[in-house]
Simulated scan of single mutants.
Amino acid sequence: MTINPNCWNEHGELKTVVVTAPSVWDVPDQQTATDVQWEKPVDRKKAYKNHEKMVRALERAGTKVIDYADYLPKESRDLNEKLLNRYFVRDLACVFGETVLPGGAGTSMRKPEYVQAHQVMKNWFEEDVFLYVGSEQKHPMEFGDVLILNRDAVFINVGLRTSIESLEHNKQAIFNAGFSEIGIIDLPRRADTLHLDMNCNMVGDDMLLARSYMRYLPVQVVTREGKQYMMLHDFLARHHIKAMYTSNVSNTVSDINFLNLDPETILVSSQANQRIFSKELNLKKKQVIKIDVEELEKGGGGIRCMTLPLVRS
């Protein structure tokens, strides 16, 4: 299979996306969930049903869905299907324009799935497209920490799972991919701020929905020419994006971690606080599709975490 990746934003029509199913193992009790850094116990049968609903919703929207596990060599599949976090595919890689950057696991528990997925992607993409580094990847970079705002700018959190060293290593590749600015934020290091997309997300092409505390955090804006600091709303305004701050987030996963299917359609968790979408955002002109992914969310990630866009028109 040969794929021509193309992603310049978070809101274009989603043409091709990567997913994979949850693990074949249950997480039977709260102590086990805590030990593997999940929020709650998970029933694998319910998780599979949730995942099937998500895939069907994507396909109904006209999106081609690829399960990367289908392309693993036979000898790798037994391990892969037992990896608890394997369905959080967003972190594994990111398409910047027409360039694919591989991620680096921020925790040792996730390293095997990165190695396996990257071996698959080496067969999907040309060498000058997929910038594979293999064992040279020394610093973590999980792409739940990245939002592609538009053709000019990307927004990246350096926190628990993505290091500033990794960003320094990859920033030239991002500029070479066609972007002119990288906005860097450093979120508080807590479980509910694990990734950027648990704290903010693009709604269409001109609005960033963000948790209210983010208005107080400075952003370092990096270009080829240099660096400067500014507040988040000022960074966004440079790119004609409005910040919409909300204090009504009861669950960072279900409330913030939604997926734009196209400029007018958003795929959200049925557990999301509907006040945010119906009253605060007033999305009367947009279609909000709700799906039940509650069992999957107990692993600590939402719909966006479970999907890796390869092509957006």
Results as ranks from 00 to 15, higher is better:
residue 169 H to N: 14
residue 179 F to L: 10
residue 157 N to S: 05
residue 156 I to D: 01
residue 186 D to T: 10
residue 150 N to P: 10
residue 173 A to I: 08
residue 185 I to K: 02
residue 156 I to K: 01
residue 156 I to T: 02
residue 183 G to A: 13
residue 186 D to N: 15
residue 187 L to I: 07
residue 147 L to M: 07
residue 179 F to D: 12
residue 154 V to F: 08
residue 178 G to Q: 10
residue 136 E to Y: 06
residue 169 H to E: 14
residue 151 R to M: 08
residue 186 D to A: 13
residue 169 H to L: 11
residue 158 V to G: 01
residue 149 L to K: 06
residue 138 K to R: 15
residue 166 S to T: 05
residue 150 N to K: 12
residue 160 L to D: 04
residue 161 R to V: 04
residue 175 F to I: 11
residue 176 N to Y: 06
residue 171 K to N: 12
residue 163 S to P: 10
residue 151 R to D: 15
residue 168 E to M: 12
residue 144 G to S: 00
residue 175 F to P: 07
residue 143 F to L: 03
residue 138 K to E: 14
residue 182 I to E: 08
residue 154 V to Q: 09
residue 148 I to F: 10
residue 180 S to N: 14
residue 182 I to F: 08
residue 158 V to Q: 01
residue 146 V to I: 03
residue 186 D to F: 07
residue 175 F to T: 11
residue 140 P to K: 02
residue 177 A to V: 06
residue 181 E to Q: 14
residue 167 L to E: 06
residue 154 V to H: 08
residue 168 E to S: 13
residue 148 I to K: 10
residue 176 N to Q: 14
residue 175 F to L: 13
residue 181 E to V: 08
residue 171 K to R: 15
residue 160 L to E: 03
residue 158 V to K: 02
residue 171 K to F: 12
residue 160 L to V: 05
residue 151 R to I: 07
residue 153 A to F: 09
residue 185 I to E: 01
residue 176 N to W: 05
residue 145 D to F: 00
residue 174 I to P: 04
residue 153 A to Y: 09
residue 150 N to A: 11
residue 149 L to Y: 11
residue 186 D to Q: 15
residue 162 T to I: 01
residue 138 K to P: 06
residue 143 F to Q: 03
residue 174 I to Q: 04
residue 157 N to L: 03
residue 175 F to N: 12
residue 141 M to A: 08
residue 169 H to V: 09
residue 160 L to T: 04
residue 137 Q to F: 05
residue 169 H to P: 06
residue 152 D to T: 11
residue 154 V to Y: 09
residue 181 E to Y: 10
residue 154 V to C: 12
residue 136 E to A: 10
residue 146 V to M: 00
residue 181 E to I: 06
residue 146 V to W: 00
residue 164 I to T: 08
residue 184 I to W: 00
residue 186 D to M: 13
residue 172 Q to F: 13
residue 187 L to M: 08
residue 175 F to Q: 12
residue 186 D to K: 14
residue 145 D to G: 03
residue 184 I to Q: 05
residue 164 I to V: 13
residue 173 A to Y: 06
residue 159 G to M: 00
residue 142 E to Y: 01
residue 151 R to P: 09
residue 144 G to L: 01
residue 146 V to C: 02
residue 179 F to Y: 15
residue 168 E to H: 07
residue 139 H to I: 02
residue 149 L to D: 09
residue 152 D to K: 15
residue 163 S to E: 04
residue 155 F to M: 12
residue 169 H to T: 13
residue 174 I to W: 02
residue 140 P to T: 03
residue 154 V to K: 07
residue 146 V to Q: 00
residue 175 F to M: 13
residue 163 S to Y: 00
